[in-house]
Design a protein around this nucleic acid. Sequence first.
DNA 1: TATTCTATATGCCTCTCACATATAGCGCGA
DNA 2: TCGCGCTATATGTGAGAGGCATATAGAATA
Lengths: 126, 126
Amino acid sequence: MRKRGRMQLDEQYAIRLSRLIEPAVLYLLGTGAAAHGYDLLSEVNAMGLTETQVDPGAVYRVLRQLEGEGAVASTWDTSGGGPARRNYELTELGRARLASWVTVIARRAEAMQEFAKHAQELLDKG
Amino acid sequence: MRKRGRMQLDEQYAIRLSRLIEPAVLYLLGTGAAAHGYDLLSEVNAMGLTETQVDPGAVYRVLRQLEGEGAVASTWDTSGGGPARRNYELTELGRARLASWVTVIARRAEAMQEFAKHAQELLDKG
DNA sequence: TATTCTATATGCCTCTCACATATAGCGCGA
DNA sequence: TCGCGCTATATGTGAGAGGCATATAGAATA
């Protein structure tokens, strides 16, 4: 008997658009534009890669997951004023992960643009 | 007390990539490339808009939902050999729906390509 | 006759998603 | 000094989506 209902997606980087939080975070950590969750939240929103405003909870969950997988590493920063920050940095594995995402996203974006072009032609014609 | 957990997404056409089944179906009905579920299934897969092979159940569910919303209309076709087919055609509302999808998809595709470009530059540099 | 292809449809279980809440340090104005 | 708001991190929750499986059935083919 085979397992059922289990989310299995052979394509590891299959794009559920919300998952775009992940590549966005990896990228921002790579550029150094942001290093902790709260900043990443606003930066991700500013990028516009995700279609709607991102939920803070989603960002923190992504960060914890990425850390669990070894794609990012964190250290607590209690130096500044205000609550402690958990600063993240990209690992080598994280860079590789970002590279995989780039390939998939570029391919998918192209397919979407092709579709939009053809569909627009259809609409113009009719 | 406000409702919770309800899928509310102000952006009606927010892209959960799997939902790309919907615009793909609308487009294929618009072109006349396919008219019933079983054909749509293979055509949608051939298009490559969706990242993985589409589940038959998903296509039929999308069709029923679209019909419920008035975006497509169906008639049974028992003329040919084999089991009866439910033939669909696009309504005016369906065309409008497709137009909305096109706008959103084009915008999103562009954002994704921009991201891929910048991320690739980052990876090349590092 | 049984297997395969066409064709439509629903059941089920897990995971995702977006909202909500919990916790807490700090600055600032009343 | 009390509350308020901003910064900051994190988890809880309920509805819906996602993907596999099965049910049904006509027709062709081996």
